[in-house]
Write a protein that binds this DNA or RNA. Structure first.
Length: 507
RNA sequence: CGGGGCGUGGCGCAGUCUGGUAGCGCGCCUCGUUCGGGACGAGGAGGCCGUGGGUUCGAAUCCCGCCGCCCCGACCA
């Protein structure tokens, strides 16, 4: 940092959780609402979500999925059908029990209170996830193998009554997408699960500039009711892990519970193999924690609500209009360019405010490129270009024409530099380990990062270690993930194994 | 659900112990001076002090109840 004073107090090093909250506030992304555990997503934050939606949705369509929409309220009996699933979500369910309010006057205070009336014969659960209600529809829709695969996605809100909410990372209500598919065979369903898992990994890397480790969850960490759960795990700047997306192979658990069956090619009645996969507004929390610095938010260009902000410098009244015109003209030219398939999002901030105030506002909002144009620049045909991934004091007075040639390249460079920075951070904080003593010693520190170990332990052994150090196995990285070697013998059992486990603290 | 803390103008707080009818900083509005930069001066707007009851001549302040929020745990995308 160029100066000792930072725009965000405290800094990451001083108090990471508080820093996170302050970044959100300074960037005007969201705020806590009067409704417990729920947030108001403000335009600058919602803009990020809209871009994530658009870009992800394109990937879903390109892989053959269609969007649909299902009810917010799920009959309680639906949830009861899959025992493990019901149990997994039971403690987080908000329940709707009435359908009417009656006005009752308090005899003492004289005030009117609205009292729930009209109790429902069967309560509804506000969806914590939609497997059961979508499964019920699938059961109606699917009759023949010719109806398969059925590839559906839903963009929706869900509710999980979390004990300890945190903006974007864990809110009682959150926005997400949930894919639900049904297939003829086990292998096809597993392929689908892996396909979407791969899509998530790619999305995080190519759109959010977050390097995630794709892996499988252990039995302990699996989605309730799933046979396999795949995850993409991100490391954020306090070295904790965040599960940024999951993809589940549900086997025939849900199809048997809900009778999602079809007549097969051989004429026999079979149960479908189903999958589900989801990502949420938690991705926004992840990207904040992955990229932002002590001066505020740093946005990866593809999901930046505005990618380029132009600040007119108008020191003299007589040249003011010329400067404003030049700024608008530049913005318009830039908007005709595309970066990764989308027109550039360019904003001219012509508010009548002190330049410094405006500049810092956009720094805190994480805009990738800031441009300043003043009267002098019009004469010299130059512009002042500043990048959010570089120190605040860094200025590049470049030729306007040259900048127009390079604008999208600069956005690409910013994306690459964010990704490279995050990758380096992650890699230096993954420590290979195949020794139990070292393993125990590692977790005595506050922010120790991840351990990578050979692993052949049981579910129970995993649980003991997890409880002891408040950690868990974040994932067993899938084949093809290149990680530092840590031997072939399990650090706990000593048995030979090809399985690797990543251990860490998590959000 | 356990343990702690807090509810006072938009935000952050002081005032509460030792009752007398509300103050500071930031922000906001106006005017002016500045300004290739998070500047300064002057003036101004904005509060039934979370809520219900009680004590009192008088309650932000004391007593009782309720509600809400935040932080730390167990749970989780």
């Amino acid at each position: 940092m160029s100066s000792e004073k930072t725009a965000i107090t405290p800094t990451r090093a001083q108090d990471f959780p508080e820093w996170y909250q302050q970044v959100i506030k300074a960037a005007d992304l969201a705020e806590n609402s009067e409704t417990r555990g729920c947030m108001v997503i403000k335009p600058w934050g919602y803009g990020i979500w809209e871009l994530i939606q658009q870009q992800m949705d394109r990937r879903f369509k390109a892989t053959g999925h269609q969007n649909a929409y299902f009810p917010l309220l799920i009959p309680l009996s639906y949830l009861e059908k899959e025992a493990e699933h019901a149990e997994g979500f039971a403690t987080e369910c908000a329940v709707v029990t009435h359908h009417r309010l009656e006005a009752v006057k308090d005899p003492v205070t004289g005030k009117t209170k609205m009292i729930p009336a009209g109790e429902l014969a069967e309560p509804y659960v506000i969806r914590p996830t939609s497997e059961t209600i979508i499964g019920a529809a699938f059961a109606r829709w699917i009759e023949s193998y010719r109806d398969l695969p059925l590839l559906i996605n839903q963009w929706a809100n869900v509710m999980r009554w979390e004990m300890r909410p945190r903006l974007f990372l864990r809110t009682a209500e959150f926005l997400w997408q949930e894919g639900h598919t049904a297939h003829e065979t086990r292998q096809e369903a597993i392929d689908e699960t892996r396909l979407m898992h791969g899509q998530y990994e790619e999305f995080m890397r190519e759109h959010l500039a977050i390097p995630v480790i794709p892996g499988e969850k252990t039995e302990n960490e699996r989605f309730p009711g799933a046979e396999m759960t795949f995850t993409v795990e991100a490391m954020v700047q306090d070295k904790k892990a965040i599960q940024a997306g999951t993809s589940h192979y549900l086997g025939q658990n849900f199809s048997k519970a809900q009778n999602i069956s079809f007549t097969g090619r051989d004429g026999t009645v079979q149960h479908a193999h189903t999958t589900s996969w989801g990502t949420s507004t938690r991705m926004i929390g992840t990207l904040i924690m992955a990229h932002s610095d002590d001066d505020g938010l740093v946005l990866p260009p593809r999901v930046a609500t505005q990618q380029i902000v132009i600040l007119p410098i108008t020191p003299k009244e007589d040249s003011k209009q010329a400067v404003l015109d030049a700024c608008q003209a530049l913005a318009e030219t830039l908007r005709h360019q595309c970066y990764r398939g989308d027109p550039l999002r360019v904003h001219v901030d012509s508010r009548d405010l002190n330049g410094g105030v405006k500049k810092w506002e956009w720094i805190k909002k994480g805009v990738p490129i800031r441009i300043e144009i003043g009267p002098r620049d019009i004469e010299t045909r130059k512009i002042c270009v500043q990048r959010r991934d570089q120190p605040i004091s860094e200025k590049d007075f470049s030729d306007k024409e040259a900048f127009l040639q390079r604008a999208t390249d600069i956005l690409a460079e910013i994306h690459d530099s964010l990704l490279a920075r995050a990758t380096e951070f992650r890699d230096t904080n993954i420590t290979p380990c195949n020794d139990l003593t070292e393993f125990h010693a590692h977790w005595t520190n506050d922010n120790p990062g991840w351990l990578l170990t050979p692993w052949s332990g049981t579910r129970e052994e995993e649980e003991v270690l997890s409880k002891q150090h408040k950690i868990n196995i974040r994932c067993l990285p899938i084949e093809g993930v290149v990680l530092p070697s840590s031997g072939d013998e399990c650090f706990l059992t000593g048995k030979e194994t090809t399985v690797r486990a990543i251990w860490g603290r998590s959000y």
